[in-house]
Design a protein around this nucleic acid. Structure first.
Lengths: 302, 302
DNA sequence: GGTTTCCATAAATACAGCTTATCAAGTTTA
DNA sequence: TAAACTTGATAAGCTGTATTTATGGAAACC
């Protein structure tokens, strides 16, 4: 079969043709493409010669696509724009002044937000955009250079990663919650409290069942309580004194330290998993994204 | 906006990338493209460098597209194949061993068929394909280099043309039709005969009304008769002795000369229009198509 | 009639893309 | 275990094509 290369003198000439056709002017096309008018004229002439078709009618001070040229132009435009868009998406990850970080709403609220002031101070030139999503979206497809995800890196073969924090879980309640209540002495005492459950709609997260199992308490003994599907709302409920929830150390550690949340019992569920900063393996990162990654990883571990 | 040129090192590299991705091998791609393996390796390396993305994983004795590469490859393939198809269609008109001639079924039957033996003798190397259509199809769109059409060349600004025969119309009947009937002496006598009408569904052709008008006979006096929508069938009906029809000289002249059809009356309706050989203006013709055109125009006028 | 603004053409030039040559790596096989 | 084979990477150098520079011609417009 005739290859595309044999059909046209050079694929580059198609780009010239596209611009010339769109602008109906060789001179304008040459300006747009940053080359001389002669080069455009030459490229078009060779393309026409090669295809054996007149693509342009040379009129006074302009050129006009012939009918055949019009048809070909439409197809070339479609083809090139398709490629153009794809190439632009690829590059979007690696360049650009802004950096998009994909993470959960919980991570955004409890980890990023408290550190944003410091971020602005240390990396003032970077326009950081946090994209929260509780789906595990496709960074490559979305053109996002950086994300925070919990889990096993082996599950993301197309991404490189660096651990940010281990997954450690303990019960917390609001500072005022214990007033008028007796603090639980043992893990089993917690069964008598108002438990707030996180019901992740898309991901699977550790639950009260996991936590109680780890201390040898049968999951069937766990009372039903408040079911909330967003971790930010879970913690807000806890802060409002509505009950006890599981706290992820890397998220709530700061609140515990400042005293607005209170740890209950001494048991910590350690899943062995880590939260990671991850980025697409095959795509080189922009300077800015690299700086953001280094900044994330340099934050003191809670 | 970033132009496509700035996104990729050269558009040619996309062709190399497409082949390499499809074949999962630089060496195989180099063979297909008729270049060296080194050139492919170099082109891909530059493309990756330019896009800032790793497109291939180099494995033992093969390369494999990365996820990002896969995505980009799909888009590039689509884009290039779109252009490829369009370019091929353009070229199909100008090259190729066969020549397609578009004409009406009537012209095919009564003009081409009687001359085909001679055509084969004079241009044996040409694979002539006659495409009959009673629509006025778009030669450019169909990739057809040559057609025969009646009418005014000014109506086809995108085509060049050369007249083949004037439009001359006279009544004819079958050789046996007059047996037992009195031959019409005047044009008006024809009104007493069984007239066969051609009812062109798509084009407008001259009718009995036109013919009678030209000799000063009111169209309202014309009797209804057989209505047939294909001129080939009209003439077959006439040959079968079913009645009298209008005969176009360039089509039925040969049948009249050989005696199987008989001209009636002396009046000839000359519309002033011509039948033309036409071809797309903007597309250069293949050698073969040119020969066919010259052959058509060199045929002795009936 | 001069001016302007397009496109075409010719000659000269630069440099991208290609080839040649060689190396490295990894699997097969002997 | 080492030699052979295949495939990709790399370096250096060459070639040819795309581009520029320079010029001319045509068509409108003032």
């Amino acid at each position: 079969m005739e290859t595309l290369r044999s059909l046209v003198p050079s694929i580059n000439s198609l780009v010239v043709f596209e611009a010339a056709g769109r602008l109906s002017s060789f001179t304008a096309a040459s300006r747009e493409l940053g080359m001389t008018q002669a080069a455009v004229s030459y490229a078009i002439a060779r393309l026409e010669e090669h295809l054996g078709a007149t693509l342009f009618l040379r009129e006074y001070r302009r050129v006009r696509l012939t009918e055949a040229g019009e048809r070909f132009h439409a197809d070339v435009s479609i083809g090139l724009s398709h490629i153009h868009r794809s190439a632009r998406d690829l590059r979007a990850v690696t360049t650009g002044s802004h950096v998009t970080l994909s993470c959960s709403t919980a991570f955004a609220s409890f980890w990023m937000v408290p550190r944003m002031a410091q971020f602005r101070e240390e990396l003032p030139h970077i326009d950081l955009r946090i994209q929260t999503s509780d789906h595990d979206l496709d960074l490559l497809g979305e053109g996002i250079p950086l994300a925070v995800r919990g889990g096993d890196p082996n599950h993301w073969p197309n991404y490189l990663s660096e651990p940010l924090a281990p997954e450690e879980i303990y019960p917390v309640c609001g500072a005022g919650y214990l007033a008028g209540r007796s603090a639980p002495m043992t893990e089993a005492d917690l069964l008598l409290h108002q438990l707030i459950h996180l019901e992740e709609p898309y991901r699977t997260a550790a639950t009260w069942a996991d936590w109680f199992s780890a201390v040898g308490i049968d999951r069937r003994r766990i009372p039903k309580g408040l079911q909330i599907n967003d971790y930010v709302l879970v913690i807000q409920s806890v802060l409002a004194g509505q009950g006890v929830a599981l706290g992820w150390r890397h998220l709530v550690g700061g609140l515990v330290d400042s005293g607005v949340l209170v740890r209950l019992t001494n048991h910590v569920l350690t899943t062995g998993l880590q939260f990671h900063v991850i980025w697409p393996r095959d795509i080189s990162m922009s300077q800015c994204a690299q700086q953001v990654r280094e900044w994330l990883l340099a934050q003191p571990r809670v």
